[in-house]
């Protein structure tokens, strides 16, 4: 059922590439308007596939998706009107200058493409307009791709691990632009990332995927509050999500609600509050097996 407060929805979404490779296995998800949602999971968890299903690149094997209530596979033009997309390692036209990309995007998109927004972003980031795309760094290319996506004035920004190749400063600038677009422009953003500090800084909601399944879907503050950390490997114990090893070699376990709509964890002897990173690691460990 389409809910107008959600801009991205998936119902029972499954994607199978062949009999062995299952990228997504029955995802139900709704991304609320005005949120910045982090999409987290190990490589192969299905993050990119999920985003690509919304962009209309991947056809669901089962279930369906909607962008602002529109199925991107059956009505791609209408669905893409709501989407600004930044692909993983965005590739620009290396024969063209940065400013040519702006012109190209304006031609491709037609109305309503806001050239002034793109130019302002590029200017703020000191990206030379006359530089050929082939001369830009990975970070600058990602920024150009993001600026073009922002120029579409789309309701939702789908950002498929755009931070992966960026240095910390470039990541910070990128996230600032995304946060600004959401807060002042009324957009919604879905950011696929592995970097927990970036997520803590920019996002208000988190979705964790593992082996094509949704493991966690909650506001970040609630997710952190609903979980706790216990010392030792408690795999198999009721209420334990997963156990994993810390940097110092000690093994700890994530204690939390068994439901994906978390309730505050019961404080008990031997537990301490979990950090967001520990929550994510605990869920990832839950699909990796008992001893990681």
């Amino acid at each position: 059922m389409v809910d107008s407060s959600n801009v991205l929805e998936a119902w029972g979404l499954a994607k199978r590439y062949n009999r062995r490779t299952v990228a997504l296995a029955g995802i139900d998800l709704a991304i609320r308007r005005g949120s910045i949602t982090a999409l987290v999971g190990p490589n192969g968890a299905g993050k990119s596939t999920l985003i690509k299903a919304w962009v209309g690149f991947e056809r669901p094997s089962a279930g369906r998706v909607a962008v602002a209530g529109v199925d991107p596979w059956t009505d791609r033009v209408a669905a893409l009107a709501h989407i600004g997309y930044v692909p993983q390692t965005p590739a620009l036209y290396r024969e063209l200058r940065v400013v040519d990309h702006v012109d190209l995007a304006a031609d491709l998109r037609g109305d309503p493409f806001e050239v002034s927004i793109v130019m302002r972003r590029l200017d703020e980031l000191d990206i030379p307009l006359d530089a050929r795309a082939g001369e830009l760094s990975g970070g600058q290319s990602a920024q150009v791709a993001l600026a073009l996506a922002l120029g579409t004035r789309a309701e939702v920004l789908l950002l498929d691990e755009p931070l992966a190749s960026l240095d910390p400063l470039a990541r910070r600038e990128f996230l600032h632009v995304v946060m600004d677009a959401v807060r002042s422009g009324g957009s919604t953003a879905l950011l696929s990332s592995h970097v927990i500090t970036d997520i803590e800084q920019a996002c208000d909601h988190i979705v964790v995927l593992g082996r094509g399944r949704k493991l966690l879907d909650a506001p970040i503050a609630e997710a952190v509050a609903a979980h706790a950390i216990a010392d030792g490997d408690m795999t198999g114990t009721p209420g334990i999500i997963g156990s994993f090893i810390e940097a110092d070699g000690t093994r700890i376990s994530l204690v939390g609600p068994t439901s994906t709509a978390p309730e505050p964890a019961q404080a008990s002897a031997g537990t301490r509050p979990a950090t967001l990173e520990e929550v994510v690691l605990g869920y990832l460990a839950s699909v990796r097996g008992p001893r990681q």
């Binding site: 690149f57 791609r76 033009v77 600004g84 997309y85 692909p87 590739a91 998109r109």
Partner: peptide, 14 residues
């Protein structure tokens, strides 16, 4: 080259 992934969503109509 991967430019289609950038251009197609921008263009909307392939």
């Amino acid at each position: 080259r991967g430019t289609a992934a950038l251009a197609w969503p921008l263009a909307r109509s392939r």
